[in-house]
Simulated assay, not measured.
Amino acid sequence: MQLSEYFILIFFLVLGAGVAGGAILVGWLLGPKSKVTKNKLAPYECGMQSVGNARIQFKVGYYLFALLFLIFDIEALFLFPVLVSFKSIVGGETVLSPAIVAVDLIVFLAILVCGLAYAWKKGVLKWE
């Protein structure tokens, strides 16, 4: 491979970096300048005065909430292609055995149910 074959790739990488850098530079030059004050650095949430440190108090809750999002996001990503091709799998039109697909789905859903049970046990699903 010669360098000339990578010219278009290098061109678009430089162009993308230039557009991103230009946008940041224009925003910095034309954007409003403001002084950093104590009030601007204070945490703000829902118009109420903050009490305590949210990073310490709710660390487990936020972590588990993000974990739940990932669990169900990955579930949708995995289940959608399987369910779209379910008719062809059951009909034997693919190299996949229906029994293998069923076992895979059962194991996958069992792992998801364990994750959901863990979150439920930790109280992440409670509305307070």
Rank of each mutant, 00 (worst) to 15 (best):
G16T: 14
G27T: 08
F58Y: 15
F86S: 13
G91I: 08
I111S: 08
A119T: 06
F78D: 04
K40W: 03
V36H: 04
T94V: 11
S85A: 10
I71M: 07
L83F: 14
C46S: 11
F69G: 15
S97H: 06
P43Y: 01
L96D: 03
I24G: 02
V107S: 03
A117N: 09
S50T: 14
L9V: 15
K121T: 06
G91P: 06
G52L: 04
V36P: 05
W28V: 11
A117F: 07
L125A: 06
A110W: 01
V60S: 14
I111Y: 08
E128R: 11
L79N: 06
N53V: 07
G18S: 15
L125M: 13
M1P: 11
F65E: 13
F58D: 13
K121D: 04
C114Q: 04
G22F: 07
V84Y: 09
F72I: 09
S88L: 08
K40L: 11
N53G: 00
V19W: 04
F72E: 11
L25M: 12
V19N: 03
L105S: 04
G47P: 02
V90R: 06
L13Y: 09
G27S: 11
V19I: 14
K59G: 15
V95P: 01
K59F: 12
L13S: 15
L15P: 02
A110P: 01
V107D: 03
I89F: 05
V113G: 00
F65P: 00
L3Q: 09
W127P: 00
P81K: 08
L25G: 10
V60E: 15
K87F: 09
M48K: 09
Y6L: 15
V90I: 15
W28C: 05
R55L: 12
Y63M: 15
V60H: 13
G123S: 02
E128Y: 12
G115A: 03
V101C: 02
N53K: 09
I56C: 04
Y62L: 13
G16C: 08
L25K: 10
E5V: 01
P43M: 05
I100A: 14
M48W: 03
M48Y: 02
I89Q: 05
K33M: 00
G92E: 02
A102C: 01
T37M: 07
F80S: 14
W120I: 05
V95Y: 06
E75C: 09
A99C: 02
A42Y: 07
F58G: 07
S34A: 14
G21T: 12
W120C: 03
W120G: 00
E93D: 10
L77C: 07
E45F: 06
I24H: 06
G16M: 13
S50E: 09
Y6M: 14
F78Y: 12
V124I: 14
G21I: 08
I8R: 12
P81F: 02
E45L: 10
L96P: 00
W120Y: 11
A119P: 03
G47A: 01
G21E: 01
G61F: 14
